[in-house]
Amino acid sequence: MSKSQTWGIVAEFDSASAIYQAAEKTMANGYQRVDAHTPFPVHGLDKALRQGPSPLGWLVICCGFSGICLAQLMMWWMNGHDYVIWTSGKLPYAWQSTIPVTFECMVLLSGFGAVFGMFGLNRLPRLHHPIFQHATFWRVTDDRFFLSIEATDPKFDRTQTVRFLESIGGKHVAVVEDIQ
């Protein structure tokens, strides 16, 4: 059984400056669950939409630190403890010779943290999204800019919000349903 409920309202804008001004006006009007959809990151839009910075850096620092610890533990345990190999009179474990591998492991785990952390924070991959049903939304990856106000917004109203988005210059303003 499929049921449908309103996901939100989507409006199209022509340019980076238009979406920027629309975002400022929408926030000034008291809407909260607002997002912009753009073909490339528009500078300053996060401030206009009052979206905070990404916490990804902290995650990556933790991953990098784990990489350092795991690499050191691995090399100490394998070469200095579990099966000691004496070559050229060098110590089985000496921190100097472990630096290159430690560095590489740090970079590897940090990179995993950055990429998979970004996907996690963005809840991606998600192959379906209600907003794709908007008639002209396919141009978001080409040359158009979209503003969405979700139905969960306290100020959301099917007629008032549509009228508001049209008043600030939005085109193809349409209610998007979430079909499940």
Binding site: D35, A36, H37, T38, P39, P41, V42, L45, D46, L49, Q51, P53, S54, L56, G57, V60, S110, G111, A114, V115, G117, M118, F119, L121, N122, L124, P125, R126, L127, H128, H129, I131, F132, F137, V140, T141, F146
Partner: peptide, 20 residues
């Protein structure tokens, strides 16, 4: 991956790109 250019996504995306 279902990319739809959301600004919230771009924020994390640009951060990930900078870190990489």
């Amino acid at each position: 991956f279902g990319w739809h250019g959301s600004n919230r996504h771009w924020i994390h995306y640009e951060k990930a790109y900078l870190i990489l």
